[in-house]
Lab assay of single mutants.
Amino acid sequence: MQIFVKTLTGKTITLEVEPSDTIENVKAKIQDKEGIPPDQQRLIFAGKQLEDGRTLSDYNIQKESTLHLVLR
């Protein structure tokens, strides 16, 4: 499924993921596309910060959901 990741600069990254993918996994995909190390990434969905060990389905993230990427 496709999800979108919006950065603070207003750029939107499109990722191909599975509901069973972990947040860690998603961060690795963002690193592949954008070169941002996962340890600098914070992903936010519905106002919650997403934890590395959880999966997209844990957070009920469905196709075409938009996550927000904050760098630390």
Rank of each mutant, 00 (worst) to 15 (best):
M1W: 12
M1C: 02
M1A: 04
M1Y: 11
M1V: 04
M1N: 03
M1G: 06
M1Q: 15
M1H: 15
Q2H: 09
Q2G: 15
Q2S: 09
Q2D: 09
Q2N: 15
I3R: 00
I3T: 01
I3N: 00
I3S: 00
F4Y: 15
F4W: 05
F4C: 02
F4R: 05
V5A: 04
V5I: 14
V5Y: 03
V5K: 00
V5W: 01
K6L: 09
K6I: 14
K6F: 07
K6P: 01
K6A: 13
K6R: 04
K6T: 08
T7K: 08
T7D: 15
T7I: 14
T7E: 08
T7F: 04
L8T: 06
L8V: 15
L8R: 15
L8E: 04
L8W: 13
T9N: 14
T9P: 13
T9H: 09
G10P: 05
G10E: 12
G10V: 04
G10N: 07
K11M: 15
K11A: 08
K11W: 15
K11Y: 12
K11F: 09
K11C: 03
T12K: 13
T12Y: 05
T12C: 02
I13S: 13
I13G: 01
I13R: 03
I13P: 00
I13D: 01
T14E: 15
T14W: 14
T14M: 08
T14S: 10
L15I: 08
L15A: 02
L15H: 00
E16M: 12
E16P: 05
E16N: 11
V17F: 08
V17G: 02
V17T: 04
E18D: 06
E18W: 04
E18A: 05
P19G: 07
P19F: 14
P19Y: 09
P19E: 12
S20H: 14
S20P: 10
S20Y: 14
S20N: 10
S20R: 08
S20A: 15
D21Q: 04
T22I: 13
T22V: 15
T22R: 12
T22N: 05
T22P: 13
I23L: 12
I23T: 14
I23S: 04
I23D: 00
E24F: 08
E24C: 03
E24L: 08
E24G: 08
E24A: 13
N25I: 11
N25Y: 09
N25L: 10
N25R: 09
V26R: 00
V26E: 00
V26W: 01
V26I: 14
V26H: 00
K27F: 04
K27L: 06
A28M: 05
K29T: 03
K29C: 03
K29M: 11
K29Q: 12
I30D: 00
Q31H: 08
Q31E: 08
Q31S: 15
Q31K: 14
Q31M: 06
Q31W: 10
K33V: 15
K33Q: 05
K33H: 12
E34S: 15
E34R: 11
E34I: 14
E34V: 06
G35F: 08
G35M: 15
G35D: 07
I36W: 11
I36E: 03
I36K: 03
I36M: 06
I36D: 03
P37G: 05
P37R: 09
P37L: 11
P37M: 11
P37V: 15
P38G: 06
P38L: 14
D39W: 09
D39E: 15
D39A: 06
Q40Y: 13
Q40S: 11
Q40W: 13
Q40L: 04
Q41T: 12
Q41H: 06
R42L: 09
R42C: 03
L43T: 01
L43N: 00
L43W: 01
L43E: 00
I44G: 13
I44W: 11
I44R: 14
I44Q: 12
F45N: 08
F45D: 02
F45M: 05
A46E: 15
A46S: 07
A46R: 09
A46F: 09
G47Q: 12
G47H: 07
G47D: 09
G47K: 05
K48M: 04
K48W: 13
K48R: 14
K48D: 14
Q49D: 11
Q49P: 06
Q49V: 15
Q49T: 05
Q49C: 03
Q49G: 10
L50H: 00
L50M: 09
L50F: 02
E51H: 13
E51N: 05
E51D: 12
E51R: 14
D52W: 05
D52I: 06
D52Q: 12
D52E: 08
D52H: 12
D52C: 03
G53E: 07
G53Q: 09
G53D: 06
R54S: 09
T55E: 12
T55P: 04
T55M: 04
L56T: 03
L56S: 01
L56G: 00
L56V: 07
L56N: 01
S57F: 07
D58W: 14
D58N: 08
Y59R: 01
Y59T: 02
Y59W: 03
N60G: 06
N60W: 12
I61L: 06
I61Y: 01
I61N: 00
I61T: 02
I61G: 01
Q62V: 05
Q62G: 07
Q62F: 10
Q62N: 11
K63C: 03
K63P: 12
K63I: 11
K63F: 12
K63Y: 13
K63E: 14
E64H: 13
S65K: 04
T66W: 13
T66H: 13
T66L: 15
T66N: 03
L67D: 01
L67A: 02
L67M: 04
L67W: 01
L67T: 02
L67R: 01
H68N: 10
H68M: 12
H68I: 04
H68W: 11
H68E: 10
H68R: 04
H68S: 11
L69H: 01
L69R: 01
V70T: 06
L71Y: 11
L71H: 15
L71N: 04
L71M: 12
R72F: 04
R72W: 09
R72K: 08
R72S: 08
R72T: 09
R72D: 15
R72C: 02
